[in-house]
């Protein structure tokens, strides 16, 4: 057909081939391993240092040392992964699965079992350390 009606071939091919789209929701969407869906925390490892809160560009994370909790507003999170990179304990990760839409924003709160070192012993130790150093 060449110059004349060059689209005809493709149109005919279309007619007899499978749809190019995934038949969602009948066929489930499979996400690749690296998909950045949402931020997860292994709260047992967290030391409530607050690095993630300070580095998060949109300020989605709140770390409450006194209340021993870590919370994230997934509606504000832009899935950039900077908190994951900054966390000294490597307890954050980004996994597949997006935040579902909702009528209003809310935070997910996670209790963190971390026990800080006894504050009473601390000043003496530091003083000793600085003397030696």
């Amino acid at each position: 057909m060449g110059q004349f009606l060059p689209f005809t071939k493709q149109a005919l091919k279309n007619l007899f081939s499978k749809p190019a789209t995934t038949q969602y929701p009948f066929v489930e969407r499979v996400y690749p391993e690296r998909t950045r869906g949402h931020v997860d925390i292994k709260n047992d490892d967290c030391i409530l240092c607050g690095m993630c809160m300070r580095s998060c560009p949109p300020g989605a994370i709140k770390v409450d040392r006194a209340g021993k909790s870590w919370s994230i507003n997934r509606f504000d999170c832009i899935q950039c992964g900077y908190c994951v990179e900054k966390c000294p304990k490597k307890c954050l990760s980004i996994t597949a699965g997006y935040q579902e839409p909702g009528p209003e924003k809310f935070s997910y709160k996670v209790e963190v079992p971390y026990e800080p070192p006894k504050p009473a012993a601390k000043p003496a130790n530091i003083a000793a350390a600085t003397k030696e150093g």
Partner: peptide, 20 residues
């Protein structure tokens, strides 16, 4: 998506190289 985890925003650049 397979290589960076994102389809529009990739977040793989960092100062000093790439992250993935």
């Amino acid at each position: 998506e397979v290589s960076t985890g994102g389809r529009v925003i990739f977040s793989v650049n960092t100062i000093g190289g790439v992250l993935k």
